[in-house]
Simulated assay, not measured.
Amino acid sequence: MKKLILSLTLMVVGFATYAQTTRDIEDINEDNSWLKLGINLGAPVGDIGNYSSFAFGLDVAGQFMRTDNFGLGVVSGYTQYFAKNDVVGAENFGAIPLGLMLRYYPEPSGFFVGTDVGYTFLTGDVISDGGFYIRPQVGYHNYDWNIFAFYNQVFTSDPAADIQTIGVAATYNIRFK
């Protein structure tokens, strides 16, 4: 799985290196930068799937289109993991990611690939305070919406406590003026 995640990340970075007209941060306008607000639904997998039944979260990101096809930005949010009722001692907990987002959009509307990388802070009664995370994704986008599937993994100091989730998300683009 780590090789797959690394390959996806390298693919996104590789797409971005092709010669294109780049924009400077001073060129931010409503055509190349926006705030993304959305929701996500996930199914915990791996060891955490034994204790948590599902995850629901809110996403927020600021994105700048460095080229016509490559976007980068910052991402955060909050995801609540809900404990299974039939597991003694299992409790709800939360995850607050803070990371860098990378996106490749081959066309102005249609398919896209991307990943978020950074650090996730964990809240509640969990074995770790947080860890490095990566969230590769593939989906559909248009001028206003992004709808995508994702895999999220938080690598904690105790590998038995790594948090893995597969899910779907949708974000709405609010243009900067």
Rank of each mutant, 00 (worst) to 15 (best):
V138F: 09
F111N: 02
Y151S: 03
G38P: 02
G124F: 03
G77Q: 00
L122D: 09
G118K: 09
R175H: 10
T17I: 12
R66D: 07
T120L: 01
L41D: 02
I28S: 03
G139F: 05
F121I: 14
S109A: 13
Y119N: 10
T171C: 02
G73R: 04
K177G: 14
Q137H: 14
G62A: 13
T165V: 09
G73N: 05
Q137V: 02
T123C: 04
W34Q: 07
V45W: 04
S53L: 07
I48N: 11
E91K: 15
Y151W: 03
A61Y: 00
G57Y: 04
Q80W: 10
G71I: 06
A95I: 09
V13C: 12
T21Q: 15
I174L: 14
T156H: 06
I96K: 00
T79Y: 05
G62F: 10
L4I: 15
G118A: 11
F70A: 04
L102V: 03
W34N: 08
Q20W: 07
I96N: 04
L72C: 01
P97R: 02
I166F: 15
G94R: 07
V126H: 09
K177Q: 12
T17S: 14
P44I: 05
L8W: 13
L41S: 05
N152R: 11
N85G: 11
Y143H: 13
G89T: 04
A95T: 11
F148P: 04
A170P: 06
N69C: 05
E30A: 15
L8H: 10
D162W: 05
G71R: 07
Q164W: 03
G130D: 02
D68S: 11
Q63F: 00
A170Q: 06
G46C: 00
S157N: 14
Y51S: 14
V13Q: 14
F54P: 00
L100R: 04
M65L: 12
P106C: 00
F150N: 06
Y105H: 11
F121L: 13
T17W: 06
R103D: 06
V74R: 07
D59P: 03
Y119R: 01
